[in-house]
Nucleic acid binder design. Structure first.
Lengths: 178, 178, 178, 178
DNA sequence: CATGAATGAGGGTTCATTCAT
DNA sequence: TATGAATGAACCCTCATTCAT
C-alpha cells in the first residue's frame, strides 16, 4: 500500500521546512514576525506557506503542537526535576511557542496537546511523590503553573545557566516541601 | 527656567491622560492595540499623543517606567512575601506592562527603573533574611527571576486566587529554605 | 455655528475626489477594479481612500447612493418616457453603479435610496396614467423591472442612439397598452 | 487524422465534466468563483482544467458558447413569445453565462455563437410577423436588445413568476405594435 | 495525459508616523 | 500647541497559472 504519490514527499519536506523556518523566525522576532519572513527563511514562495497553513494561526498552532508533542516525549525520559530543567532550558529557544503557550494575542486551541503534556507531567509528579522527592501536598495545577511561569521567565529574562540553576533550586526546594 | 508656564500645565495633564489611557488600552488588548485607540480613550487627537511620545515605543517605555516606579513604592510598604503576592496579583491587570517587562517584540530599555525595583526588592530580601524568613543562601538575582516568572505566569495563565496561593506557597517554601 | 474645522474642507474635497474617481474607475473596469486604482485616479494615497471608506463595499455603496439620489432628482424634472430615455442613456456611463443596482456579487444595502427611486418613478407612472399615456393596468413593479432591465441592456449591449430609440419605442408601445 | 485515439475519449469526457462543473459553479457564485472550485466540483485536478482551457477566460468562453448553442436549439422549437419566456426563465439559472453575455469584466468574443442565436431569433421574428403576431416595423436588433435586457433584468432582479409574466406582457404588447 | 504542489503578483486592509491647518 | 487628515510601507491572504512528477 503505497499511500501518497511521489510528489507527496516534496510536500512533506516543504511542510517541515516551513515549520522549521517558522519556529526559528517566531523564536527570533516573536509571533509578530511576518509570514513572508517565514517563507523567505524557508526558501519558498509565500503561496506555498499558505497552501500548507491556510492561516497564520494555523501555522502557529502547528508549531505549538509540535513543541508540545516534543515536550511530552521529553517528559517520558526524565524525572520531574530534570524535566523542569529541560523545559526551562528549551524555552529560550522557543520564544514563539512559549508566547503561544501563554496565549498572548493569538487565539489558538491546542487543548489536546496541552492535555497530553499535563498528563505526562502528572505522571512525573506521581513518581516523584512516590519516591519522596516531592511533598505529598503538592498538586498538579501548581506544578503546571510553576512550569509555565519558569518557562516564560527563562524565555524573556535571558537567564544564564547559573541563574537558571539557582532559580530552579529555589522552586525545587519548595516542591520538596521542607 | 520657564518650567511652569500655563501651557505646561495642560501638557502635563495631557501626558497623564495619555499614560492612563495607554495603560488601560494595552492592558486590555495587548501591545498590538493601535495608538489611535489610545488617543480615542484619552479623548485626544492622535497628533497630541505623538507630540508627547514621538514613538509608540516611547509611550510603552513610559508606561513601563511608571509601573516599575509604582512597584518600587509598593515594595516599601510590604515584606518580601507580601510583595510577591502583590506583584503577582497586579500582573493580570497590567498585561501590557508585563509584556514589556518581558521584552516581547518591542525593544525597550528601562534599566534605571528596573534597577530601582531591584534595589527595593533587595532591601526586602535582606530584611526577610535578617528575620530568618528566607534562607541566607538565596540571592537577589534568583528572587528577581522568580518574581518576573510568576508575574508572567499569572498574567498569561489566568490563575484563580486559589491556584495563585498554592503556586506562591511552593515558591515561598523554597525561599524559606527548609 | 461653524460646525467643522477648516480641515474639514480638505477632507470633503478629497471625499468627493474619491467618489468621482471611483465612479470613473468602476465604470471603466467594473467593480473588480482595485481600490488602489481608485486612489491613483484620485491622486491620493491608498490610506486616504480607506480612511474615508473603511471598506471597498462602503465605497461602492456610497457611489450607488449618489447615483440613485441623482436619478431621483432627475425623475422630478421629466415625464415617465423621458425619464426612461434618460436613465438608459446614463447607464452606459455608470457601469459599476448599474452592476450594483443589479446586485452583482457585492452585497450592498441601499434600500432607502432604492425606495426613493421607486417612489419617484411611481409618481411619474401615476401622472402618465392620469394623462392617458400609459395603460391603467400597468403597475409599478413591472415598470421598475423594465427600467432596470433596459439599463442593464444598454450598459452591457453597447447600444447606439438609434438602437436605443427603437428598443425603447417597443417598450413604450407596450406601456401605452394598445 | 488521429482524432479518435482512446485517450481522446477520456479527454472528451473530462472536457464535458469541466464545462458542467464550471456552469454550476459560476451560476452559483458568479464568475469570481475560483477555477480551483470548478476543478473540485468536476472531481479533477486543477492542472487538468487548465490543460483543457488554458485560461479562465477560455473556460468562460466555452460555457458561453455552449449556452448560446443550446438557446439556438431551443429557439427552433418555439415561437418568438415562448422563446422570450424560455430565455428569461433560464437566465436566473445561468448567472455566469448571462454575466458573460453581458461582457461584464471578462473580455470574451463569441461572435459566431452570438450570430447563430441572432439568426435563430431572426427566423422566429419573421414567422411571427408573417403570422401577424408582431408589428412589421419591428426589426431584429431591437428584439435582440430586448431579449438581452430582459435576461439581465430577470437574472439580477430576482423576479418571481408573476412579475416576470407582467413584465413580459408589457414587452409583448409593444412588439405586437398596437 | 493527469496530478497537485509551487509560484508570485495583486488585492483589501491596518497603522505608525508626518504635516498642513 | 492641538488637531486630525494624509501618507505609504507592510501585512495577511487569494488565485490564475506553471511545471515537476
Amino acid at each position: 500500500m503505497v499511500e501518497g504519490s511521489p510528489l507527496r514527499a516534496d510536500a512533506q519536506r516543504n511542510r517541515a521546512r516551513i515549520l522549521d523556518a517558522a519556529e526559528a523566525v517566531f523564536a527570533e522576532f516573536g509571533t509578530r514576525a511576518s509570514t513572508e519572513e517565514v517563507a523567505r527563511r524557508a526558501g519558498l514562495a509565500i503561496g506555498t506557506v499558505f497552501r500548507h497553513f491556510p492561516t497564520k494561526d494555523d501555522l502557529l498552532t502547528a508549531i505549538m503542537k509540535r513543541l508540545l508533542a516534543q515536550l511530552v516525549e521529553d517528559a517520558g525520559e526524565r524525572d520531574l526535576f530534570a524535566f523542569f530543567g529541560h523545559a526551562v532550558a528549551q524555552a529560550a529557544a522557543k520564544k514563539a511557542a512559549v508566547d503561544l503557550l501563554a496565549g498572548s494575542g493569538i487565539d489558538i486551541r491546542v487543548p489536546d496537546a496541552l492535555g497530553h503534556l499535563s498528563d505526562a507531567v502528572g505522571r512525573l509528579l506521581t513518581q516523584a511523590q512516590d519516591a519522596g522527592a516531592v511533598a505529598a501536598s503538592v498538586r498538579l495545577p501548581e506544578v503546571m503553573a510553576l512550569l509555565a511561569s519558569l518557562c516564560q521567565g527563562a524565555l524573556h529574562g535571558g537567564w544564564d545557566d547559573h541563574l537558571q540553576a539557582r532559580t530552579l533550586a529555589v522552586v525545587f526546594a519548595g516542591l520538596k516541601g521542607c
